[in-house]
Design a protein around this nucleic acid. Structure first.
Lengths: 277, 277
DNA sequence: GAGTGGTCTAGACCACCGG
DNA sequence: CGGTGGTCTAGACCACTCG
């Protein structure tokens, strides 16, 4: 108590300033919780709250049974949202907008990052309400024996060898029957947008939606985070074809801290395009 | 421990399902922490952790000394990012892109929400590094007596009477001398974009950047949240004029849960425009 | 086996809110 | 005033990792 500010946030501030002024450099291990507790003369729980505060700010990452470390300020990988997928804007490298496969790797290279993604995991599953709504699937009575199903294609994506994002794309089962490459656990070489165009579904528009939410268990594991970390950024894209029908839902979850969502409109100086922040 | 799952997250799950199946409706008060502790036979700290988990998911809001309540599912206010500010897309109501003053109120009305914003608070202050970088202000040596300054215009914005977002716009001091309305604590009737155009700065492009981060003390207070809530969404817009010079930095912080960031490109069915999710 | 953070206990006092 | 959540203590055991 000792005044107006709580002890744990005083401790957090002290660590924060040590990090910001470089006394604790990137990757450095913080003193263990026991050491901190002893040196401040407080109980372990108070230290945990302090470290937790820094974790939520993304300054520190904690690996259970190893310790807490100053987060490496990974050069941001910038997700640039633009009209490229629609062919409206064709300057090379200008925007990829949560693109799949090749587009992801190409954008990364332009930003001087190395990227790769796992082989897609393909699964046919019952559609949940988000997927049904986005893809315009009619709801069925809950007792129906034939639940609507979707094809999910999931990839883990890495930048500079480190986990960057998880991407899940959902398609109606009907569509996957026409466009069978969707069912194969293989990268679609030309990209799904081009492939589906060749199957008669031209992507003429899309709607993007962003959210921030706490990571799920699976995401914590993939990103190597511990509970109480920064929020992840969720990007939902619903793509529409030439008939105004939604035909693809892509949900990408980005690791916090190392990603920035960017959107550029109109004329801006070239430097702005070149690099993130 | 009683198994693989921790007790606090078991308690959280139980409350979560009570909320989702309606046993605890919107606005309902959760049992007090003492009641929960007694009924589960656990210590108070364990209950706090459980409630904390729900708070981070935005399912519950806690008001110190009053209790924890199921969050009201406010109809989402959708922030639609598009080219309207540039006159590229003129269909009425299609996108306002973090616009100021009138644009904010108009967009809200279109979505059938009532909106208003506070009188702008105007302040001349030393520029921080984010502002200097965005506005292209040259850094000065730290011992310099004349630090670069910026004009800040801040507004609190409300939707349906509830706090929705905090917006701060920054301008170079030079610009505010040419365009003196910026210095007055009065809504700029025609909007800042139009006003600055009349002063010779045509907004020809902008760069948007999004981030999620834990709320600052000031934001907690404005949004009426308690510590450990959901992340806020931060939207930075740097606007460029006809000479490719940045002339405005606008940072808008949105209350979590009730806002969605949306971006629409190309052709999508009209329904998509009409309403949020 | 020593050391780490994660979970948990059974209390305590405090600040603030309401009647 | 009683009730609330916020902070804090001084311990405990566990699961896991590392040398």
């Amino acid at each position: 108590m000792a005044g107006r500010i709580s002890k744990y946030s005083e401790i957090a501030s002290d660590l924060r300033s040590k990090i910001e002024n470089g006394a604790l450099g990137p990757g450095a291990q913080l003193p263990t919780e026991k050491e901190l507790a002893d040196s401040w003369g407080v109980s372990p729980n108070t230290i945990k709250k302090a470290v937790n505060e820094l974790r939520q700010e993304g300054l520190v990452e904690t690996f259970p049974q190893k310790g807490s470390f100053v987060a490496e300020p990974a050069p941001p990988f910038v997700i640039t949202l633009n009209h490229m997928d629609l062919g409206e804007e064709n300057a090379p490298g200008r925007g990829f907008g949560g693109g799949e496969g090749k587009a992801f790797v190409a954008e990364a290279r332009r930003q001087q990052h190395r990227a790769h993604s796992s082989k897609p995991e393909v699964q046919v599953e019952d559609a949940d309400s988000v997927q049904m709504k986005a893809l315009g699937i009619e709801p069925v009575p809950p007792d129906s024996r034939q639940k609507p199903q979707v094809v999910r294609r999931s990839q883990e994506r890495f930048v500079d060898g480190k986990p960057n994002s998880l991407q899940h794309s959902y398609f109606k089962l009907d569509l996957a029957i026409q466009a069978q490459a969707l069912l194969k656990s293989v990268d679609i070489e030309e990209g799904t947008v081009a492939y589906l165009q060749s199957c008669g579904h031209v992507q003429t528009g899309y709607e993007d939606e962003f959210n921030a939410r706490p990571p799920k268990e699976e995401e914590l594991k993939f990103f190597g985070l511990s509970r109480g970390s920064l929020a992840v950024i969720e990007h939902k894209r619903t793509a529409y074809d030439q008939h105004g029908e939604p035909f693809r839902l892509t949900i990408t979850v980005y690791k916090p801290g190392t990603n920035k969502i960017r959107f550029i409109a109109g004329e801006v100086p070239d430097e702005v395009w070149e690099r993130g922040s």
